[in-house]
Design a protein around this nucleic acid. Sequence first.
DNA 1: CCGGCAGGTGATAATGTTTTCACCATGCAC
DNA 2: GTGCATGGTGAAAACATTATCACCTGCCGG
Lengths: 211, 211
Amino acid sequence: MHELTARQAEILAFIREHLASEGRPPTRPELARAFDLTSTNGVQKHLMALAAKGAIELIPNAARGIRLLQEAGLPLVGRVAAGSPVLAIENVLGRYPVDPSMFNPRADYLLQVRGLSMRDEGILDGDWLAVHRTSEARNGQLVVARLGNDVTVKRLKVRGTKAELIPANPDFQTLHLDLTRDSLEIEGIGVGVIRNLTAAVAPPARKVHRL
Amino acid sequence: MHELTARQAEILAFIREHLASEGRPPTRPELARAFDLTSTNGVQKHLMALAAKGAIELIPNAARGIRLLQEAGLPLVGRVAAGSPVLAIENVLGRYPVDPSMFNPRADYLLQVRGLSMRDEGILDGDWLAVHRTSEARNGQLVVARLGNDVTVKRLKVRGTKAELIPANPDFQTLHLDLTRDSLEIEGIGVGVIRNLTAAVAPPARKVHRL
DNA sequence: CCGGCAGGTGATAATGTTTTCACCATGCAC
DNA sequence: GTGCATGGTGAAAACATTATCACCTGCCGG
């Protein structure tokens, strides 16, 4: 999908909100009113641009025939490849119908937790950690941190230039960092945990495309 | 909300499905086609009946102006009052935007877990257990069981007429039951766990009515 | 300095959709 | 058996919505 222009992103956001608050997509006149356009044709062109870029699908001759694509839920991030951004395509295992607003602050993605380093806080191997993307974390928060090429989930403690990444399992060691030397990048904070109790991970429940 | 007739329930179910699969509510002609009605007026009457019973809201003069009411997510059940059905109104704390199809089998409600009897499986006090409503459970499954007036979450083990409800915490005792004497009602099986890591429980994220 | 793209106005035809007429049949409670 | 709720047909008017025409502006890169 090509990059959207600022205007197109605004319009896409409005469609998303309308869908959430009204339960149906907007019409072109509704969009025109929302953006103070006097002609529905301006809207139509934006919609066609969004459709061309793969952000939406337009169903011909259907009232409110606007369908959001690739909007179903949050991406599930598996093992993070060394050096790659967390949300890089190669790390994403699929999309799952989790409502971002279920957690506070909003969840941006799901991270599949590996290992038992947070076992005593009830976070087990394979659990999904709902992560709010931010580079700012406060003392005591559960953070998704990047240390060099590794991504890890721990409790954060900061004192001046010293930082600690504290596991919740006596079998694991607390990581002591000197912020004047070591690089500590916060990828986000953990806002929720989701565990599937039955069998293997189900395939994404909501299909993105339709033929 | 009054009870729906079988026909009305069918139509409501179709609207729900259409919304999930197409991303927008159906029109009256679409409903008529789906139910082999030759006139949209038959549909219209059903819709008005559903609206009168509070199942949907009809927005006048709006294409696809059908809005589902009380359909936002799953009910969260708190402490279950003695002797009352799990889903009795007095037990429901609110509705939360959890997609039932996120788990397999489908989640029917969320049960707020009390106590630490399943701690070693990573189910902590206050966690939400996604429950699939069924009276049949297999050996080894996590069950929501009713023992007299109490509702409890444990692993189930059955051998002939003997049943065990096994906690995951050495501080708690396994419950031994003789099915010829004791009553063991299975309310459902646990299919998932959801934990909110940040502060207090957020209010329901999606309003149900709109004025 | 010119072509192309994003973002517009304004108008209209064609189509989709809601709403309301009048009328009919069945089952069930009182 | 009469009244009422439910579940229908068929048709038409009114309104909502999509789609497409012609034409305009400003910005940017070659």
